[in-house]
Design a binder for these strands. Structure first.
Lengths: 197, 197
DNA sequence: GGCGAAGTGACAGTCACTGACAATAGGCGT
DNA sequence: ACGCCTATTGTCAGTGACTGTCACTTCGCC
């Protein structure tokens, strides 16, 4: 019964998250996910290329938002400025999605196979950022380096915000880019400690 | 027949690389690898946790070298200085291993599953660097950021050297860290182009 | 010359994932 | 209302990665 298509997909995602939380990722079979969603195992693989992908969705929209953010930066902006603006443009989205992201992260944290997939997802975003920078006129190799470094800072800020949501993601992002500057240009402290706040 | 144990392991690795090059990774079964190595499929999985790992080996030694490099840096060195020294300490190893690395990279480049595994391997090295920095007194979060940024620069340098081995890995590494500094502290060009040489 | 440990073969089984074909529901024009 | 077309799903059969178990062989050692 082809109810709506997107409906089955959503149920599959919910079922997957539920089961992964109940029994863990490894102990859950794709057949069980399909059964809880009220479809066949075959249908699961029509909606997701593999078992892991049931946990990752909406990445396309996120990538597009980041890309747009980079391209929308003022013409005089340096690569790192453009990246920072792009990250700021998705702050709200990330903060709003926290209730959805939080349980997902818990599952990912204790599943090596899922952590591995997160890395490729992040790499995909990094590539998109790199290409966006390149389209702004940044030399290809430099764009790659900038995208990777910026993404590292962004991931660092997000992780910090996840453990300590208090000051808001924006503050963590500012702090991360500030620390990044201190690290790379680090004139001062040979003791290699960052300034307090 | 337990000839030597390590012997079978080495033959399995060679067989795997050969077959991956001949038919591609996906089109090669673990049974075929085992057969060419003169053992059973079961033995393959006694030596490697999964099919991908047959291509990745000696990573432990590499990680130890990087860690030692960080810890051996002079006491006054900044985190980025320590990382650069660590990377320099493995330059020779990488350059010498090029004949072995080159065919492997060709297989990896055209196999998404292997590229994904590379990312987790790199993440493992980054974690090791982060912990080494942390043991030097660098605050944990900052150490993570520094390790990721440094690893990005290192990967960038290595990739560039791979395509253009001419000036040597050392030059590429110097250049990468220089570009990194320009990016983060980017005083000059808003046009975001890097200085020529 | 037996003896324990390490390495291996053989066998059976689970599970992720795929290809092919039939069946059904819903939208659309007539 | 009727048939048509398309998208979605069910069904079936199959491949291949990976695991558990047990028996066997080889090696080092006393």
């Amino acid at each position: 019964m082809p109810r709506s298509g997107a409906d089955a997909r959503r149920r599959l995602q919910e079922a997957a998250l539920e089961l992964f939380r109940e029994r863990g990722y490894e102990a859950t079979t794709t057949a069980e996910i399909a059964a809880r969603a009220g479809v066949t195992e075959r249908t699961f693989f029509r909606h997701f290329p593999d078992k892991r992908e049931a946990l990752f969705d909406g990445e396309d929209a996120f990538r597009a938002a980041l890309t747009d953010g980079v391209l929308a930066a003022p013409e005089g902006a340096t690569p790192m400025d453009a990246l920072l603006l792009a990250f700021r443009s998705v702050e709200r989205t990330i903060e709003n999605n926290r209730p959805i992201t939080e349980p997902r992260q818990a599952v990912i944290a204790q599943t090596p196979a899922l952590r591995e997939r997160v890395l490729t997802k992040t790499a995909g975003l990094t590539d998109a950022l790199s290409e966006a920078l390149s389209r702004r006129g940044v030399e290809r190799g430099l764009a790659t380096l900038a995208a990777q470094v910026g993404m590292a800072a962004f991931a660092y800020a997000t992780r910090a915000w996840f453990y300590e949501p208090e000051p808001g993601l924006d503050a963590h992002l500012t702090r991360a880019f500030s620390q990044l500057r201190d690290l790379s240009c680090g004139r001062g402290d040979p003791a290699s400690r960052a300034p307090g706040g």
